[in-house]
Every structure is written in structure tokens, then in C-alpha cells.
Design a protein around this nucleic acid. Sequence first.
DNA 1: GCCGTTTTCGGCCCGACTGTTTTCAGTCG
Length: 569
Amino acid sequence: MDKNGIISSLKELAQYLELDGENPFKIRSYLKAADVLEHTKESIETLIESGKLRNLEGIGEAIEKKIIAWYHNEPVPALERVKSKYPASLLELFSVQSLGAKRIRSLYDNLHITNIEELYQACLDGKVSTLPGFNKKIENKIIESIQLLDQWKGQFLISQGLEVGQRFTEELKNIFEEEDIYITGSLRRYEETIRNINLLIAIRDKESTIKKLKEHFSPNIEQKKDSLLLVIHQEIPIFISLVDKRDVGTKLVFDTGSKQYVDYLIQHSASKNLYFSSQGLFTHDNQQIFIDNEEKFFNFIELPYLPPELRNIYNDMEVVYKEANKLVQFEDISGIVHCHSQYSDGHNSISELAEYCIEKGYKYIVICDHSQSAGYANGLSVEDIKKQHEEIEQLNKQYKPFHIFKGIECDIKSDGTLDYPDEILSTFDVVIGSIHSKLDMDKKTATQRLLKAIENPYLDVLGHLSGRLLLSRKGYPLDIDTILKVCSEHNVAIEINANPQRLDIDWKNIYLSRKYDLNFVISVDAHNLKGIEDLKYGVYVARKGLLSPQKILNCKNIEEFQNWFHQRT
DNA sequence: GCCGTTTTCGGCCCGACTGTTTTCAGTCG
């Protein structure tokens, strides 16, 4: 079993034990071990062979033994025992909101519910609300949560898609040395979530390509009319289409989409007496025009080239074409904002984070740990803040000219106040305000809560605006237009949270906010070094929202960045 | 189950919220 398999097994064991009513601390130690393993750079082979597994904090004798057994594909008695007691499908229920181990156990014992479908039916029949520990409200919440899960079923985060897509593309490149392979579809457009991975192979000879694909991926391959469908077990469905090398430009445009944008191109082509379809581009007398790159295609139909991430339908396409080459690029980013350190729930020290940023060529970093009321995330006490600021001042001498800014991700409490008194807030260079608690609000309450926070002169940046977690939690309802308007009046910047689970503020709202004079920060919300690499997702969100680098604070150099925050206070 | 230690067992993260609880259990972040 590989590392990911072992991590999943540890989490699975923890869930089974929770169902079984085990000691919560024992359960937590399995989860902690899974977490430690997940954040260890070293491979599982190295850890086991060098005997270093036990050196990891949270892995003792018992867990080490289990990991080694899984590694050698041997059964682990503790897991086998609990597995035999409950149907595996029961674990699905942990993904339903309002359900924890106690309630799941009650559903299983009393109503013999073993999966989400049975649970949904039992809720519709009104059976769930009659159980002790449940009621009508909880029953309705469960129904709503299952409906959302159903809506998200079969979807994946962009980060998951890219990982699988890139890995698979490399694999294909080894098989097809001569052909060019492209990622297309929603993955190439950097949509927040995707349903499948679309690849395009530019081929010389169709028959031999299909033969090769079948040889390598049989029996997981299905041939469709003019494409091939590959289903890799437990991963994301992969569609592969093939195109004559001479026509790769046209096909790339068609396969990249979006559907609405391609429809727009079809109409536009028709106005030029050209016919554009999945088969290619044709003249009015059905002569195919072969085009071997995208720029030439756009040239031919007399439209400006549009980068894939912008291929959507906007209210005003003229603006999109006009702005397309002025948009922020990855290279424009000077500093990394919103990193959690070991002071709260991050995995790395401030110096590790800083050194990583120096190595990557960034000029500064803003450390933003959680504030005091975020107990679950080890939020910083006033004492911790003093200690952290002293450490940062020390490190700043050492790392000069690189600069570490003193930031905080300060909780916006349920009444809209911030989590520290003014005299503490004034000690930070950057205050990002975010909501982490009491997410179940109506639109008016949520809007008022944020407006109150925005009016606080110490709030510099409004963090992950909607509170959504893609494919797992809807954001709270908000009067977004009012919030953005008031932010511009108070000169509060908006965070573009680049964590692929969030991508919050939504790019569509960035586009709609063009009428206001707003500044943005592309922040990583990183909890480890790898999280800093999420920056790219934020850059794509900003580009989709048509932002230029002038609107993005962390495109500024150290002095300009510092000045912007200082002139606010 | 892990850790640290006063070496062999006690502490481990917890506060807010929700429901109908009239003092607590379960879930969530």
C-alpha cells in the first residue's frame, strides 16, 4: 500500500472506532498520525527502511506496527475487527452535515440505515425526526445536506484535476513520443471545479494511436464515435480525443470550450460565412480549413486571441478583449500573503516559510495566524503575539532585504467585532478579517456582521468573503454588492483566497465589482510550504475577474505595500 | 494511542451553538 493508502486507512480506522464509541483521544491519535504522515516530505519507503517512523511526533509503537503492516499489504486486526461490525457504506454518512458518530450509530441501530440513499428516504418518510437526539429541524438539515452532496457528486476540485491530469499526460508522453498532447476542457480554463479531464492528442495515424491506447489501458477504455473514454479506477474520468496534426489549432479551441464561448464562436464564424464544429472549420462550400495553432484560428475568424481562462461569456465581451493582455500574471506577484505558522495551526516555522519564499524569489511574506477565539486552530493569545512579533523583528534583521510583515487572520465575531482590542490590532502591519464561526446566518445578519467589521478602521482586508468550501459547504448568503461598495468607501481590500477549496471571492463577483474602486490581495491561506504553491489558482481567479496588477496589493514592492497599509491607519 | 515523566499513569483543545436541554449531548470549526 502506498502513502496515500496508509493515510486513508488511518482515517478509516478512526471513523470506525468513533462509530464503535472508542476513547476520543485514541481516535484523535490516529487522525494525528495520518496528518503527520501527510505532511512529511520523506517517502514511506524511506521512513520504514530507516526506522524513522517512530521519530515522527504522534507515531508510537502501535501505529508504527499498523503502518508497516499496511505497507506490506498485510491485514491490520484492529481495522478488520471493526470493519466486520459495520457495513462500509455507513462511513458515507460522515459527509452529511449534522451527523456525527453518535447520530450515525443511532440511525444504524434503530432504523438499520446503512447508506445515504436509505437515510434520504427515511428522512422523507419522517422516520429520522422521531429518534432520540433528532428532530424536524435536524431532519430538514440532513435532507438539504444530502441534496447538496448529490449536486456536487462527480465533481472535483481544480487542484485534484490538475494533479491527475498532469500525471496522466506525462504517462501518455512516454507512450506517444511523437505526438503532442494537450490538456483541454474545464481544466485548461481553470474552472473552480471539474467533472472530467479532457485531453487532446495530435496524431499522424489514427488507427495505430487507438491500437496503442487500447494496448496500454485495456480494459479501462471505451471507444466512442470520435473520441475515446478512459476510466481510471477511483479517479477522475478522462476523455481523450484525437485530431489530425494539421488541424490541432481548431480542435484545441473547440475542446477547450466553454460551451457558451464556443457557441459564441460558432455564431461569429457563421457571420463570416464559416462553419465551425467539432469536426473543424469549413467554408460555405464545405471545404475544410486546416489550422494548426490557436492564434491562427482566432486570426482567421478575425477575433483577438483569448487565453483559455477567459473563455466564458461576460456581459460585455468588448471589455474582455480590450483588457485581456493587461491582466495580472504570475510573475507580477512580489509577496506572499496569509501564511499560517506553527504559532497557530500551520506546519512550518516562520523562518521556514520565509526561507521558502526567498528561495522562490518573492520579496516579502505576511504571516497571518489565527486570532485568540479560534481555539480549534490554536489561535494566538496576546502573549503569543508579543513573542511572535519579537521573533519576526529578529528574523527581519537576518533576512534583509526580504521582509516579514506582522499580520493576523482575525476572527470577525458573531456581532461583527474583531477578536482583539484596538491597542493589539494596532500592532499588526496587516489585519485580515475572516468569519470562522456561526456560519448558519440569514442574508441580513451575515451582511450586517460583515458591514460592522468593514467599518472597523483596523480591518485592512476582508478574508474569504463567502465562507464557501467548494464541494463541501455553501457559503453564507450575502448582499455582496453592498459589501463591496462599502469596502471601496472604507478602502478595505478584498482577499482572493487561492486555496483551491475556497477560491473565494468568486471571480464572477470580482467582475461585477468593476464599478467600484477596489483593491485586492491574492492570498494563499497556506498551512504548509506546499500551500504557497496554490498562488497560481488565485492568479487565475484574478484574471477571470479581469484584474490588472495595479489593482492587486501584493504586486507592489515592499515599500509600496507597506505604505498602502500604513496610510490606512 | 501518544507522550512525558515525579518511569507507569494522567492528560491530551475547546468554546460556541443548537435544540427543547431545564443542565446536557452532539456537532462544528
